[in-house]
Design a protein around this nucleic acid. Structure first.
Lengths: 162, 162
DNA sequence: CATCTGGGTTTCGTGAAGCAACCTTGGTTG
DNA sequence: CAACCAAGGTTGCTTCACGAAACCCAGATG
């Protein structure tokens, strides 16, 4: 059998990757962080195969990372929410995103910048500390804002399609 | 073609995952962090198929995350080292490891604990800050030490084999 | 000269990813 | 009340990557 586990490894990294290390899984979690909670929405945004998305969502719900709640009975319509366990993946996503922006940069700069929500609005660094006020920022205190690299990247994407 | 890329995504997370998101890749990088630099060593430790390990190492070298240097000419023997780009993945590994220890704990506690190297010896938290002296710790100032969960986990592993 | 060691590559079977088509439940429209 | 639409999947098929084992090659070792 082809496995998604790392048998014989004791390290916590291996145990983490057994849950979120599969292709697409972290991207799906990012979608939920960005507020895209519906199946079709995620599918369209990611360009993921529907059966694979279905599989990933199911695994994430089983693992306790996502939770499925209806936003409408009759017709039954479901949405996926992050549990505490899922919200706690935010640091991982922040760190990886910073790494990507540093070493695989877009020509125009980062497409997204995390900021301290509300009054402060300071930039959040890869230790999740606000560069302006020094606060240790949590998920709920952060907000994703558009960075300088987004528009150029979108333009190029549109150009490549034509 | 089956891809390891996430076409059409602009986010840095996607770009990061294109480099280190494949199965085994992060585990290989962890091996190098732990000082296991030789092909056979990693292969044995991870229980990864040799062709897959070969593929991952090659990709990581191509991406600029690892560097291959001989530690002996005649006979030619190679070792893999982390570049700056590779060393900068340390925050990601730290964060994911903390997450795993929190949400998928071993009965005896974490098998490994990161500490501030040298005099201080304080525990490093998931913001890479030393809990004793408050320093912002970098890779080179950190050291992996045995945690309380290692021995029980090893014992159980040996028991499961018998 | 046979064997061993390190560091791979080759071959081959199985299973996951990708894609398209289909299904189900319940609106909505003419 | 028939036809159609939308959301949220599932099914079937093809292709490709993973896993295991065998093989290869250069140089050391007995």
């Amino acid at each position: 059998m082809l496995r998604n586990d790392y048998e014989g490894q004791i390290c916590a990294l291996a145990r983490s990757l057994e849950l979120i290390g599969e292709r697409w899984t972290l991207m799906v979690i990012r979608e939920v962080f960005l507020g895209r909670r519906r199946f079709g929405e995620m599918q369209e945004n990611l360009g993921i195969a529907r059966n694979v998305l279905s599989n990933r969502l199911q695994r994430l719900v089983d693992a306790g990372i996502l939770e499925k709640r209806p936003y409408s009975e009759r017709p039954l319509r479901e949405q996926y929410y992050l549990t505490e366990m899922g919200l706690d993946l935010w640091p991982t996503i922040v760190t990886l995103t910073h790494w990507g922006d540093k070493y695989i940069p877009l020509p125009g700069g980062p497409p997204m910048i995390l900021r301290h929500r509300g009054e402060c609005g300071g930039v959040i660094n890869d230790r999740r500390i606000c560069e302006r006020c020094g606060a240790e920022v949590t998920v709920r205190e952060a907000i994703a804002t558009e960075g300088p690299g987004l528009k150029p990247a979108l333009a190029e994407l549109a150009g490549a399609k034509a």
